[in-house]
Structure formats: structure tokens, C-alpha cells
Write a protein that binds this DNA or RNA. Sequence first.
DNA 1: GTGAGATTAATTTGATCAAGTTTTTGCGTT
DNA 2: AACGCAAAAACTTGATCAAATTAATCTCAC
Lengths: 238, 238
Amino acid sequence: MEGTGNLAQGFEQSDENAPRVPVHQQVYAQLRDAVLFGELAPGQAVTIQGLIKRTGAGMTPIREAIRRLTSEGALEFQGNRRVVVPLLTLDTIDDLIFLRESVETRLAERAASRVTEAQIARLEAIDARLDDAITRGDVPAYLRRNYDFHALLYGAAQAPILLDVADSVWLRFGPSMRVVCGRMGTQNLPDNHKTALAALRAQDTDAAAEAMREDVVQGMEQIRAAMLDGTGFSDVID
Amino acid sequence: MEGTGNLAQGFEQSDENAPRVPVHQQVYAQLRDAVLFGELAPGQAVTIQGLIKRTGAGMTPIREAIRRLTSEGALEFQGNRRVVVPLLTLDTIDDLIFLRESVETRLAERAASRVTEAQIARLEAIDARLDDAITRGDVPAYLRRNYDFHALLYGAAQAPILLDVADSVWLRFGPSMRVVCGRMGTQNLPDNHKTALAALRAQDTDAAAEAMREDVVQGMEQIRAAMLDGTGFSDVID
DNA sequence: GTGAGATTAATTTGATCAAGTTTTTGCGTT
DNA sequence: AACGCAAAAACTTGATCAAATTAATCTCAC
């Protein structure tokens, strides 16, 4: 049920006799990170040959990684055999907001009733590093910590299918999130995590779900607002 | 936005100078059909070598197709490097019901406001063949026509992301649906399509959405009921 | 001597790579 | 501007290597 590199992932094994992780999974994880944390801009082309040179891997594993990311919405077929990082439109952003609101609220609710004391402690540790990133104005760190927080929380829900959907949605708005944060910094970003954590400690599932709902909606409205005013995202391809 | 073989797909091109469809897409489409319409039983193993013999294709395209279907939830990694058709559990069926109800209701609502007269006519034609399949007790035909109906309707919603999610959900419950229908025949199956079609003609988006919601929930409750009583799905592997 | 368990051999399957083929794209010439 | 040629990229295949499952054999206990 854990997939291979999704929202709930516990990295272990770095010793030598550990089960070797296949190349196609490494490439997948690497590409996935690049999309999720905005190392690839919306509209940018992703080529097999480019990844061969960049990663040193063979062609077959790279093809598999690209296919997989394409299925998950992180990449997009471009009719001919081109693959690009998708650009969000106003139509699709509404659907993403809808999905995040319904799915992640449900994930938070279920997580709240199953989360352990130790997991709450880890969530607080992540949130502290997230606050740090915000005050430093460190956008990449903010994106990673924010993802870590949601991933750990939702992983506790033990709902692999909902987790897959949430994963796919995060992959779709990741590149645009990076662009938005790069423009407006980390100041106006939402952080309802304190409220959520208090609710988790109080075992108030409804309150926890509500806090995460607000967190999600506020974050997505930032993206929508950035798309409405000014240039959209067409400037990032340059 | 149409992906390559998803819910909204119009097969054309069978002439010779048409753009040749790549092998990996053919294999994907073929395997996808097999999962969706229950040609593969839940729990059944899917091997690369087996598909090489069955399809005659090379190894790489088959690997890509399997990777893709795995991402979409139609297949599942089995820890070691085995891939199988997933078995539904009571936990996951609840999540599927939740997803179908929220996502497909929204799709139906948006489709209702954008569907054309010609598309309604096509929907009615499909529904007639569906009725025919039900009265004949033809389970495979029922599954295909029912899918066609939903696919055509949701395609009219012009919401590619929601469509992808709906696709993934259909792939996950497809094999179990086949088992359930094989047990209880086509008699008690839901068909609220007439109500939905009337609402579409009346341009009543809410009524159309509500009809489809009931159709979805009734169908999924059949699966849940079949899982609760008796053997679950463990008997189908034999 | 027979049977159960474990160790090892053989077969099957998956993973990776490199070479050959086809398609697309971009540039240069007419 | 249109056509054609060349370069690059994607697609497909087959071969090779590694891992896992299955089959066979061997040992030891009863």
C-alpha cells in the first residue's frame, strides 16, 4: 500500500547490504521532487535525452519514470511526443481547489482519529522548521516543510487511495506554487498548522479537519489570485 | 488535455496514413480494458513475460504500460517485484464511494451545463444498448455500456483533472464490479440514466447531478454488500 | 526406512542498457 | 514562403545481468 515514493514515505536503509533501490525509482523520486518543489517551471519541456545526460541513467528507467509522472498529472503529453510541465489554467485551478478541499479535509479527519503522540511531536518539529523558513523568507525550504507536514499528517490517515489523489493534486499545483511564492515571498502564506496541532492534541477531529481545510483553501486562493492579476504564468518560460 | 486512452476517448483512425499509435499506448489501452471490464480477476498476477507472449510487443513498451497502470491504481506492486490486480478491502471501498460521490457528482453537474444536443442523443443511444444488455443478462456488455455512458457524460464536463481522478477510481473498482455482477447477474443493477437524461434535456443541472449521484452510490453499495456477506473476493483467484 | 525440514540448483521473471528504426523538428536553400 | 535535407529525439527491440520463485536433493531425526 505504500507505493514507492509517495506522500507517506519513511526513508530508511542507507547501508550497503540493504535492498538496492531500482534506478527507475530513483529517477522517479528525483523528477518528482523537481516538479513538486518548483525546480521545473510550468511549461518547461522534459526530454528523455536530457534526463539521460542529467542523471546518467539508461533510457528504459527514465521512460518509466516519465510515464508514471505523466499518469499522476505531474507531466503532460503534448500531442506529438513532447512532454512538458503543465501550465495551470483558471478552469483547472477550480478543480484543484475542489479536490484539495474535499479530499484533504477527509484525510485530516481520519488522520486526527489515528495519529499517535509520537507523530504529533514530529509534526510540531516540522512546523517549527516551517516557521523558520517563513521568517527567513526561504521559499524552497517553505515548500518542502509544508509538504512534509501535510504528508506526515495524511499518512497517518491510513487511506492509500485518498493519499494517491492528494499526491496527484500536489504534483499538479507544485510548479505554480513555486512561481507564486517566488513573486510574493513567504509572508502572506497560510499556516493554520498551530490550530490543527492543538486540535490533534485535544483529539478534536472536526476542528483538526476544519483547520486543514482553511489552510488548503487559503493556499489555493493565493494561487488563484496570482493567476487573476497580471500575467498569469506565461512569463516563467522565458 | 485528453490524455491517451482515458475516460473521454474517441477512437478514430484506422486508415493507413493516419498517425501510427505507439505500441506502448496500444498495450496500455489493451491492459486497461482488461482491468476495467473484469477480464483480469482481483488478485491475479500480471507479468511482463506473460504480456510479451500475449501481445507480441517488446519489453520496454510493456514495462511502460504496467508502470502507468500502477500509478493509476489499476495494478499494484506486491512488495517483491510482483504486480497484481488489487483486491478491494472494506476500508478502501469507503474511500472509493466517497470519491465517486463527490467527484462524479461534480462532473455530472458541469457536464449538464455544457452538454450538447448531439451528445444527449448519443447518451440515449448508449443507454438503449445498456438496457438491452441488462435484459439479456450480458454482464460484459453491461459493464462496457455503463462505462461508455459515464465516460461520454463526464467528457462533456471539460474538466480533465476530475476526469483523471474518476478514471483512476473506475480502474480500482472495475475488477470487483465484474465479480459482483457475475454473482448476482444484471437484474438489481442501478440505472438512473433515464432520470439523468430527462434532467439533461430540461437543462436542470442539479437534478442531473442528483440522478448520477444516486446511480453511483447504488452501484457502489452493491459492491460493499457483496463484500460484507459471504466470502469477500478471496474465492475468485482459485 | 521413511518423512519433514532445510539447503542448493534450475528456471522463471524483472531490471538495465545499447543499438537500430522511425518520427519530428529546425534550418537552409530555392 | 515552401520544399527538402540534416540533426535530434522518441520508439522499439533484443541481449545481458540480477533477483526471486520453484524444484530437487540432501540430511537428520524418528
